[in-house]
Nucleic acid binder design. Structure first.
Lengths: 103, 103
DNA sequence: ACCATACGCAAGCATTTACTTGCACGTCAA
DNA sequence: TTGACGTGCAAGTAAATGCTTGCGTATGGT
């Protein structure tokens, strides 16, 4: 269920960075944000002091990985979280047999 | 449920590399392998021609991330897959609402 | 004891990555 | 149109990363 142009490795590399994980956390907490909103809320809520350009580049990587979808309205660009690509990670390797202690 | 000394970012960075994901695939397919066995089976089954030292360093990173556990017997060191740390990724962000088409 | 085997350590190198810097483009209000 | 605002683009830099190379250590067979 991966969108066209999204390579598998992109998803893994996208979530390998701490700042990008914080961005996903932010969008999970509050969807539909502009670049400036994300910058501000990251600085306040997550203690990250990244520049606008840095966040912009991170968002581009997340979008390429299919983890963030965007929608342009006028001069604003809104960002939405899409966790569907994470299913790749969940389904790739077997679940730990955590119920071995029973029976 | 993370072992001591394992940082969150280590797990994400560990699976960000394609070779390391192939190693996890290999151990999922066949657990309890030595370094040389992994090298050989990676070359044959996954078309990867990585050197022993390269694989060794990857295994160290995977072990630091808690994704691989080891057991030494004589001069052999056996490697085991442990997918428990992956629960971090699964539980961190909300699941996609894929059942919106229903109802 | 000897040597081969299985693995570990550490320095060096090339590529990748995250970030900055400076400028450019499109949108909206006056 | 003018200017401010929100965003995009691209070159340059410093750090991280993956890999190689060479040597070192411990175990086991003969």
């Amino acid at each position: 269920m991966l969108a066209y142009g999204v390579r598998v490795g992109d998803v893994f590399k996208a979530i390998a960075d701490e700042t990008r994980r914080a961005i996903l956390d932010e969008l999970a907490e509050r969807d539909e944000q502009t670049l400036f909103e994300i910058c501000g809320r990251l600085a306040v809520g997550h203690g990250l002091a990244s520049s606008r350009q840095a966040i912009s580049q991170h968002l581009e990587i997340l979008e390429d990985a299919g983890l963030v979808r965007t929608e342009r309205r006028g001069r604003y660009k809104y960002h939405f979280l899409d966790t569907a690509p994470l299913q790749l990670i969940i389904s790739r390797w077997p679940r730990p047999e955590e119920n071995n202690h029973a029976d």
